[in-house]
Computed example of a mutant assay.
Amino acid sequence: MHPFTYTGLPARVVFGQGTISQLPDEVAALGISRALVLTTPGQAKQGHQVSDLLAGVSAGVFSEAAMHTPSDVTDAAMAAFADRNADGIVSIGGGSTIGLGKAIALRNDAPQVVVPTSYAGSEMTPILGQTENGKKTTQRTLRVLPETVIYDVDFTLTLPAQMTFTSGMNAIAHAVEALYAEQTNPVLSMMAEDGIAKMVDALNRVQAAPQDIGVRSDALYGAWLCAVCLGSGGIALHHKLCHVLGGSFGLPHAETHTIVLPHALAYNAPVIPQAMDALKRATGTATPAGALYDIARNGGVPTALRDIGMPQDGIDRAIAFTLENPYFNPRALERNALTELLTNAWHGTRPEG
């Protein structure tokens, strides 16, 4: 017998096609009378469409969400929330927008409805990462967990090819670490393996049929499973490295996860035999780290940190930040081995594990 603790997080999920039509009812169910709609600048048009759907319940659109949730953007959003007499949040977008909604909720307990348009998964987690003065910090609190999530496959049909692959890899990373994080348990392991398998299969098919409802449904379902793993499980070296790289060097979130994941997995592979067995089944290969690298390469997305703006002379600084406040990891963090990991990731070398 292997004792374990599993915590199921409270969240209402509406999954399907055309489910955005249920948004007004879901907003009303939370008692929201004035909903501030959040987006990034690039998704402002979608934000206004959602605002129109809400009609008189909308408090307008705030479309300045940014990567890594900068504190100054949150300050501006809080001012808009107050000026427009909002009492709730509708976030439509990926991790940047959802992160901003969480940051607002942390400060004022506003109820949140989230409409994800990518596979990032932040919508199912009580985790918030914020950046201030060039340093990203994370915290875990139920105050930021969205109350309702509306998954509408239609919003993913036009997801650009590059974003599909990087966002999908980001989702896979959540489930990979759930297999060997400190809070791992049989329930999460089952969801993680299925989530990875669904997403890997979808990513292998999506280039040939980017608007296929079945493919996109599998990807979105897999992303949801992976997100639950992140929310109810834990994280380890991979996420620590990505938090450091993103916050310290301004690297794009999903691309950083895509590049680092195969290398972080290869680092831990020697000490996680059960997790590796699950990953072999989920990827259908004997070398899961290499298989994940190949998905990114075949998808035409960056596989080297140097290609997304990471300076080579920043490797030592990244390792220092990682060791300064490390997360749990199944393998001890060794400076020389971490240097090799990040050097390989900087060059884009394919891992063998």
Rank of each mutant, 00 (worst) to 15 (best):
H2T: 15
P3W: 15
P3A: 15
F4E: 15
T5C: 15
T7S: 15
L9R: 14
P10W: 09
R12M: 09
G16S: 01
D25M: 06
V27C: 04
A28N: 00
L30K: 00
G31F: 03
I32K: 02
L38K: 04
T40Q: 01
G42A: 00
S58L: 06
G60K: 00
T69E: 07
P70F: 03
S71G: 14
D83Y: 12
A86Y: 06
A86W: 05
I89W: 10
V90M: 09
G95M: 02
K102W: 08
P111E: 00
V115L: 10
S122M: 08
E123A: 03
M124C: 12
K136E: 02
T141N: 09
T141R: 04
R143I: 07
P146H: 10
V153K: 02
V153F: 05
D154Q: 13
L157S: 07
P160S: 05
Q162H: 15
G168H: 05
M169V: 07
A171C: 02
V176I: 03
A178G: 07
Y180V: 01
N185W: 04
P186G: 01
M191Y: 03
I196S: 06
A197K: 12
K198N: 12
M199F: 06
D201W: 13
A202C: 09
L203S: 00
N204T: 14
R205C: 11
V206S: 11
Q211Y: 13
Q211W: 12
L230K: 10
H238V: 11
S248L: 14
A266F: 07
A269C: 05
K280T: 11
D294Q: 14
D294T: 14
A296K: 07
V301T: 08
L305N: 01
M310F: 11
G314M: 01
I315Q: 06
D316A: 14
I319E: 08
A320E: 13
A320L: 09
N325D: 14
Y327K: 13
N329P: 03
P330Y: 08
E334Y: 07
A337K: 02
T339C: 10
L342P: 00
W346S: 04
H347W: 14
